[in-house]
Design a protein around this nucleic acid. Structure first.
Length: 491
DNA sequence: GAAGTCACG
DNA sequence: ACGTACGTGACTTCA
């Protein structure tokens, strides 16, 4: 559909991203009008019928009512001030950008995945065999219930096993890693889980989603799902393709250019959230580190541990990195101690030293929380809002959760704003210049392009520049660009 | 459909 | 004493 158009979904998402945007609910809440229940037409459960089986008359009434509700909502959904700007200048133009990306899709080599599937099958079988032998019986390793009984009742790995909040034995990765020294079986279980996960979620699932007409996968990018303003990707989710582990990375080799005249180009923001935090807090120490292009985690370590940059060792850097990371989420000393496997006392010392050195960060965080308590919401760089309904709750758990959101949402959401602006500008430029290259994926701080080889030389700089300059910050933005014959190589 | 688990940023 | 790092989507099991 060509603009101008109004979009009730996107408009209401901006007004209040976490509540329902369905026409049914908006009709009730905003128009005080109860629209027809679709279940009255197609039923539910095992009696559910296809829309194609519904009579023309009933369909007409149903569709007509929807059109009516949409038009009436348009009059009521009045965005103002900054939110109107975000709607007009970002979310609305973004719709067609996402449409284009979904339409183009990304080519996937099913041969790569087929070979990987066989490898994972063999590896998984071997792990399963080892588990059964060490357990002394066969059972379903994929069932957390059965696995818990084997580990904690039959083999009695620990005296007091951790339980989940429903009373089952907890067998998550973190728990099992701590038990790896107790019994040889544990590592085989962890291996089995990895192989199964990669196989079922990616290697065997992706080929079924390749469109036979073009050999590509066309994901859906949802614009009105994430509470912070991020996009989400589904059917399939192309924003969580493995990269952290050796075996998982192999999957990225299956994501390839559309033909032999193209290559993949991946451009990602380096440390975008930390740069945003430094800029919002106007923390001169951190801003200076970014301006001078220093290793931010090493710089943090040198300040926190009171040593020179040269004296920072790998362990100090690792700890500082965890602090920088946790900072963006409102982490506590307890959380840091867990993440680093150090005592709470040490974690507390590290955090205190951190806030001593980066006092502006601390002041900023206190300011954001105070503002959230006063107004009931927080804002991103563009004025995008997230309401925090529990921010003044008397329930400590609920209130603390809201306070962590108050810290995280403006940062995560501003990163989302920045990359969205870049996407709009880049798409407009590609079109204006009549280029064959296509923007095909967004992964929160990364954009992936199917680039025609003839255009490679004059596309990299403009893309990088448009990402860098999307919105103004008090710190320089750095974009890392890679090019390759597959998504892994492009990193 | 809930719960548990785990893939990504 | 409590609970403890944010945001997503997909798969398997099980009632």
């Amino acid at each position: 559909m060509a603009p101008p158009y109004f979009d009730t979904l996107v408009a209401h998402y901006l007004m209040d991203p976490e509540t329902s945007h369905s026409l049914q609910v908006l009709g009730e809440n905003i128009l005080n009008y109860k629209a027809m229940d679709p279940e009255a037409l197609i039923g539910s459960g095992r009696n559910k019928i296809s829309w194609q089986q519904v009579s023309q008359d009933k369909l007409t009434l149903y569709a007509g009512e929807k059109a009516d509700v949409i038009l009436q909502l348009k009059q009521q959904l009045q965005l103002r001030d900054k939110l109107l700007d975000v709607y007009r200048d970002i979310e609305l133009p973004l719709i067609s950008v996402l449409t284009d990306m979904e339409y183009e899709g990304i080519r996937v080599d099913s041969k790569v995945l087929g070979d990987l599937s066989k490898e994972l099958e063999a590896a998984s079988e071997a792990s399963q065999k080892a588990v059964f032998e060490l357990a002394g019986e066969e059972f379903n390793i994929g069932s957390p219930k059965q696995l818990g009984e084997i580990l904690f009742e039959k083999l009695t790995l620990v005296e007091k096993p951790k339980k989940t909040r429903t009373g089952q034995y907890a067998t998550g990765e973190e728990i099992l890693i701590k038990l790896a020294d107790e019994h040889e079986i544990v590592q085989h279980i962890l291996d089995f889980r990895v192989y199964q996960k990669l196989k079922s979620t990616y290697v065997d699932a992706l080929p079924q989603l390749i469109d036979p007409r073009d050999g590509r996968i066309h994901s859906t990018f949802s614009q009105a799902v994430a509470a912070t303003g991020r996009l989400s990707s589904n059917n399939p989710n192309l924003q969580n393709i493995p990269i952290r582990t050796e075996k998982g990375r192999e999957i990225r080799k299956a994501f390839i250019p559309r033909d032999d005249k193209h290559v993949l180009l991946a451009a990602d923001y380096s440390q975008i959230e930390l740069r945003i935090a430094a800029s919002f807090a106007k923390d001169q120490h951190m801003i200076e580190a970014f301006k001078e292009g220093r290793d931010i985690h090493a710089t943090t370590a040198s300040k926190v541990f009171g040593v020179t940059l040269e004296e920072v060792d790998a362990n100090m850097r690792r700890k500082a990195k965890a602090v920088n990371f946790g900072l963006l989420y409102g982490q506590t000393a307890f959380g840091l101690s867990q993440a680093l496997s150090v005592s709470r006392a040490e974690a507390k010392e590290i955090m205190e030293a951190y806030f001593q050195e980066f006092s502006a960060i601390k002041e900023y965080m206190d300011r954001v929380i105070a503002q959230a308590h006063e107004t009931g919401y927080v804002e991103t760089i563009t004025g995008r809002r997230r309401y925090l309904r529990d921010i003044n709750s008397r329930n400590y758990t609920l209130r603390s959760y809201a306070e962590r959101n108050a810290i995280n949402a403006p940062i995560q959401g501003s990163a989302a704003d920045i990359i969205k602006v870049a996407m709009i500008n880049i798409q407009q430029w590609l079109r204006q210049e009549n280029l064959k290259s296509k923007m095909i994926l967004q992964v929160h701080d990364e954009l992936v392009f199917d680039v025609h080889q003839d255009e490679l030389d004059h596309i990299e700089e403009p893309i990088s520049k448009m990402m860098r300059d999307a919105l103004p910050l008090d710190v320089p933005m750095v974009i890392d660009v890679g090019i390759g014959q597959n998504w892994l190589e492009a990193h």
